[in-house]
């Protein structure tokens, strides 16, 4: 993703800023400006706590371009405490220690870049909650 594309996502990447539907109260992440439950416009910012649990996970040995330095790394679907689900890498944990239902929390980490003149992209990863 290019510089402008990453820059636009900084509120989500650094602080998990999603949205709250003013009509039905549904909490939304990633933001989409329309409530997925009632289709009303939903643009009120809502900052998620970063607490959640692992819904499922897998470990990647053959990474896409730009992620080679991290391989092998574990990715997960994470159910946030407030309800929405997101996709992220896990960090600070061995892949064989991960389990479905494991409590996790958001941390800020390097996602990719920093080589060959590419800007470093920072964003959310999740680590076991007990480390906090």
């Amino acid at each position: 993703m290019n510089v402008a594309g990453n820059w636009r996502l900084q509120q989500q990447r650094y602080r998990l800023v999603g949205e709250e539907c003013e009509k039905c109260g549904t909490l939304i992440f990633p933001p989409r400006d329309l409530c997925p439950e009632c289709e009303a416009p939903a643009k009120m910012p809502y900052v998620f706590s970063g607490q959640g649990e692992v819904y499922s996970y897998s470990t990647i040995y053959s990474p896409p371009r730009g992620f080679e330095e991290f391989a092998p790394y574990t990715v997960a679907l994470i159910r946030l405490k407030e309800g929405p689900m997101l996709t992220a890498q896990l960090t600070d944990v061995e892949s064989d220690k991960v389990y479905i239902g494991m409590p996790v929390e958001m941390v800020t980490r390097k996602i990719q870049g920093g080589d060959e003149g590419n800007p470093i992209v920072y964003g959310y990863k999740f680590r076991p909650a007990h480390l906090g």
Partner: peptide
Amino acid sequence: EYEAAQGVTFVALNAMLMRRYMY
């Protein structure tokens, strides 16, 4: 913006579904 940008591959997406199904 929210899957591929995290370094997730297409195989990994299916792997997570498979693991959850087994669970």
